[in-house]
């Protein structure tokens, strides 16, 4: 079972092969398109991450001692990035998620998408994923 950091390292390696911005974004777009849509019943106001531009939804479930995340966005690039976050953090324990350090975003040059001024909700999404984990981690403790 790969750790959060193993998955981050894999993504960084994958992105290191892209030669220019368009290859990187083409990958994100294709990745975004390949992800399943979140079921409509989960696209609730409660699951909505508020950002200025694209809409993002995040749904979390507990399976055993793991948290599984499902996410979606109406903008495809956002969905690709959201998908990467899910890929990294989903299917880990609450404690692993809460204590994780997300360094891959910086390394693959997508930091700007997470800046608070970008106002696309991704920073809020990371915070929300971690807060789910914190709450569950506290419940278990």
């Amino acid at each position: 079972m790969p750790t959060i950091n193993d998955i981050q390292d894999d993504i960084i390696e994958c992105f290191s092969m892209f030669e220019d911005w368009s290859e990187k974004y083409e990958y994100l777009i294709d990745f975004g398109k390949s992800l399943e849509h979140l079921e409509e019943k989960y696209k609730t106001e409660e699951n909505r991450i508020h950002g200025c531009q694209s809409r993002v939804w995040l749904h979390a479930e507990q399976q055993g001692d793991k948290i599984i995340f499902y996410a979606d966005s109406d903008a495809i690039i956002t969905k690709g990035i959201v998908g990467l976050l899910v890929k990294v953090l989903s299917n880990h324990t609450a404690n692993e998620i809460a204590t994780s350090e997300l360094y891959f975003i910086d390394k693959i040059g997508l930091r700007e998408h997470l800046s608070p001024t970008r106002a696309n909700g991704l920073l809020s999404m990371v915070k929300k994923m971690k807060s789910y984990a914190l709450i569950w981690d506290n419940q278990q403790a």
Binding site: S22, C52, Q53, S54, A75, I77, T78
Partner: peptide, 22 residues
């Protein structure tokens, strides 16, 4: 069929500054 945010990101990467959103 395309979200304005996506279009804005691709244009930005080409050095073109437009605004997207409401």
């Amino acid at each position: 069929g395309l979200h304005p945010y996506d279009v804005g990101v691709i244009l930005d990467n080409q050095g073109i500054a437009i605004r997207t959103g409401h």
